[in-house]
């Protein structure tokens, strides 16, 4: 009885993953090997299970790698990948630069106000992500709040052009993903024994030296977790560049969207998605490794 219960509890997450991750993945993978056709659904070959095994193998034999060749050779796609990678890397770095001091400040704040600070970090999640990104349009657009304020204060005379540029995308990504950076770093810093820093100071480290050699070093697992949690969703981000980035910001999420919905080319869109996944697997595996090593080290 206990054994059965154990199997069910272990099995359920696997079942969940199979249904909602593995199965959709296999469908996308299979579409990426197909050709686009003007039909519904818009790709061939189709599997017709009523015609038996022979029809299935025939269909499989018509699979093609043409889409992969096409996507990898067309500079439009490679540029979109590279641009996404660049934007994701820069945003991750910016999020870290802003998030680390925040997390550090929180971990050093008096015990009594820490829950409130934590609440403030999580609070934005209470509003829909989409609405928050829309709000940034209102702030950043030429006649928006920010320009009104800066011009009203006499700091600038012509409105800043931030909306519909890459800078707006950085602002959007940093804003949206900041909690994912702050929370894991805070978690590692908060449980760190401050006497390590005092010991380092006692042994001859300046305040800055002790920060680098002890605090920053011991926060590394949290920093890595935060970076991956920001980088992985940022690289495939669609909503933020679509709403804030304008037409000139090239990101793979937007390319994918236009292949699916504008061009109705499901096979190429699927291929773009599969290649994106392949690119992401590398940092994901690195992340898992880092996590496993941290767990092994026991902290």
């Amino acid at each position: 009885m206990g054994n059965f219960f154990k199997r069910v509890t272990i099995g359920l997450p696997y079942l969940w993953l199979c249904l909602l991750f593995l199965l959709p993945f296999l469908i996308v993978l299979r579409v990426s090997f197909s050709e686009p056709v003007l039909a519904m659904p818009p790709f061939a070959p189709q599997f017709d299970l009523s015609e038996g095994w022979q029809a299935f193998t025939d269909a499989v034999s018509r699979f093609t790698l043409y889409n992969f060749q096409f996507v990898l050779e067309d500079s439009l796609y490679t540029n979109a990948y590279l641009s996404s990678l660049r934007i994701a890397l820069i945003s991750t770095f910016l999020t870290l630069v802003i998030g680390f001091p925040l997390a550090y400040g929180m971990s050093r704040a008096p015990m009594t106000i820490r829950p409130m600070l934590l609440m403030l970090v999580i609070l934005p999640f209470w509003t829909s992500f989409l609405i928050r990104v829309y709000a940034w349009i209102g702030i950043l657009k030429p006649e928006g709040l920010m320009n009104q304020f800066l011009m009203g204060a006499g700091i600038i005379s012509t409105p800043l052009r931030i909306y519909n540029t890459e800078i707006a995308v950085y602002i959007g990504i940093v804003y949206s993903y900041l909690p994912f950076m702050v929370l894991p770093i805070y978690a590692t810093l908060e449980k760190m024994d401050y006497s390590y820093v005092e010991a380092a100071r006692d042994l001859g480290c300046s305040a800055l030296g002790a920060f680098w050699k002890i605090t920053a070093r011991l926060a590394l697992p949290g920093v890595l977790a935060g970076c991956f949690l920001v980088f992985i969703p940022a690289i495939g981000e669609f909503v933020i560049p679509e709403l804030l980035g304008g037409s000139r910001t090239l990101m793979i999420g937007k390319t994918l969207w236009s292949e699916f919905f504008n061009n109705r080319d499901w096979p190429v869109a699927s291929t773009v998605a599969i290649i994106l996944l392949a690119i992401l697997v590398v940092p994901i595996v690195l992340f898992q490794n880092a996590q496993a090593r941290a767990a092994e080290a026991g902290r």
Partner: peptide, 28 residues
């Protein structure tokens, strides 16, 4: 400041740096 005092302290919690070996801790 603490790092300029010819004084060393042994902490109650020992405060051994968890990411360093015994040798590196002592040599720090």
């Amino acid at each position: 400041p603490p790092h300029k005092r010819p004084v060393n302290m042994m902490f109650q919690s020992y405060a051994l740096f968890p990411h360093m070996s015994v040798r590196d801790n002592i040599g720090f």
